[in-house]
């Protein structure tokens, strides 16, 4: 429930469409997603994309990849690592204020890190 609250606040404060917290193996921990979006598939996709991004940065010897975002014609999908144990995925509309969104995500990450211990 505590994770759900963090996600709900994030969606509300940042003007996002949805958010999902995923374990590194791709299983959803909590989510606030719009109707019609499959929680499990978003979760699995988030973990997979971040993991592949990490593989690229591992080739560069540049440490761990923290955040990756994809812009589409209908909006943004932003994946951020939470410690080494989870991935936070956020869906935002195309007109979202990216700066504000990224700041709110960082705030939510801090809360989640505390919750995850």
């Amino acid at each position: 429930m505590k994770y759900y609250d963090v996600l709900e606040n994030l969606v509300r404060d940042a003007g996002a469409e949805g958010a999902v917290l995923v374990s590194v193996d791709g299983l959803a921990i909590a989510s606030v997603l719009p109707a019609g979006v499959d929680e499990d598939r978003v979760a699995a996709m988030g973990a997979a994309i971040l993991s592949l991004g990490e593989r690229v940065t591992a080739e560069l010897n540049k440490g761990q990849l923290e955040q990756l975002y994809i812009k589409g014609s209908t909006g943004y999908v932003i994946f951020t690592g939470v410690k080494d144990v989870a991935v936070l995925g956020v869906l935002a509309p195309a007109n979202a204020k990216l700066g504000l969104l990224l700041m709110e995500i960082q705030r939510a990450i801090k809360k989640l890190e505390t919750e995850l211990g």
Binding site: D38, T57, G63, V77
Partner: peptide, 23 residues
């Protein structure tokens, strides 16, 4: 494959950055 989950997503770009790199 995001298009399969979010219909008509149509990717424009992907970006990621670290302290001293960008992808």
């Amino acid at each position: 494959e995001l298009n399969e989950i979010l219909p008509n997503f149509k990717e424009e770009f992907l970006f990621s950055e670290g302290k001293d790199y960008s992808l």
